[in-house]
Design a protein around this nucleic acid. Structure first.
Lengths: 193, 193
DNA sequence: CGAAAATTTGATCGAAGTCAATCATTGTGG
DNA sequence: CCACAATGATTGACTTCGATCAAATTTTCG
């Protein structure tokens, strides 16, 4: 996939850019074509890049008492980064890995800031992403706090219907904050009655 | 409390402003002196104001199956707004009420946007607030998902040590996603052993 | 094909929820 | 300024959802 096409996708999914901004973004970006299971960010690293998923999928995860907990999934046209490291310039508490063969667009924080300062449209896009993320986190808190395991799962399927075909259940379970066993039982209609 | 003092507090807690920006902010703001229990935002309203707490405290809450669930607490030098309504211009899903006699600075979204466009420092402050909120939500998800009721409570006390003196336990319990009864048992050292 | 990984199924346990009653605190009107 | 509602918090008995531990089964892939 060529960089022009990817940037066009960003524009259709977020906001249109001026020609000049588009050109600058192109020069500030790098395409990564990655195999399944490639880890692109490790815990402890300073992770000052953000990734746009052109093709494939990725997840961020952390280790809590040795257990691998998925924090976030990203699919086509989503952005993903190590939030604390990218925004606070601290060592990453997250890992990020690609879940399928994927094509990503990588942009550094430095370039994001430069482009945001130079182009209002770009600043709008970056604000939009942060705001949307904040709102999704808000909704997720409500979901985690007051829904049963089944409701959480059904909720997830509403926003990401094909996730079970693309991501293994272990990751989905940890994302939902339930065990793999519970998720398995929930998915079996016999156990619902 | 005078508006100059309040804006000075915003500056010391966030970022310094130029004289011109400070003056514009002053003209764009309004002071509210409110009694305990005053509801300043109701569900269903378009709530395009953000409030800075100069004195006192406030909470946002929503009704889930008729139950009053606290979504967020704000104390001195915090900002609070109905996130979905302010950022997406949708009817508020939240109520906001003052928990103590309070002094708030009210600024409209329109003015926030005007000031952000005009002054880079102001834009930085607004980005800072959104980013910090996002990071706090992220941490809260981890806390909700993997901690026991006791750990959640102790966690809350770390970030807001005087909360139990200022907010009643019903609100604290719903904020933590536990029942009032559980919170009460947790707080009694006899039940810990 | 066979080993490793992923998922399902079963049995048991425990943290926190629910329902209900009691106790404590606050605040208002007579 | 007390009395007595009203609100807020505690305690108790019981239940339940989902966790844990363990084993079996299915799928994936070299």
């Amino acid at each position: 996939m060529e960089i022009e096409k990817i940037i066009k996708n960003i524009e259709t999914n977020y906001l249109a850019l001026t020609n000049e901004c588009r050109k600058d973004l192109q020069n500030a970006s790098r395409i990564l074509s990655l195999d399944k299971d490639t880890v692109i960010v490790k815990e402890g690293q300073f992770a000052h890049k953000v990734y746009f998923i052109a093709e494939g999928s990725a997840r961020s995860y952390y280790l809590k008492d040795g257990r691998d907990i998925t924090d976030w999934f990203a699919f086509e046209n989503d952005f993903i980064c190590s939030v604390n490291s990218f925004f606070l310039n601290t060592p990453s508490s997250l890992f990020i890995e690609v879940l399928e063969p994927s094509v990503l667009l990588e942009i550094s924080r430095e370039n994001v800031n430069l482009l945001s300062d130079k182009y209002t449209e770009f600043d709008r896009i970056s604000k939009l992403i942060v705001t949307n993320t904040m709102l999704r986190l808000q909704e997720r808190i409500v979901s985690i706090q007051f829904e049963t395991a089944l409701q959480k799962y059904e909720n997830l399927l509403k926003t990401m219907p094909d996730i079970t075909q693309r991501v293994n259940l272990t990751h989905i379970a940890s994302f939902l904050g339930i065990t793999l066993e519970t998720l398995s039982r929930i998915r079996n209609p016999k156990n619902r009655i």
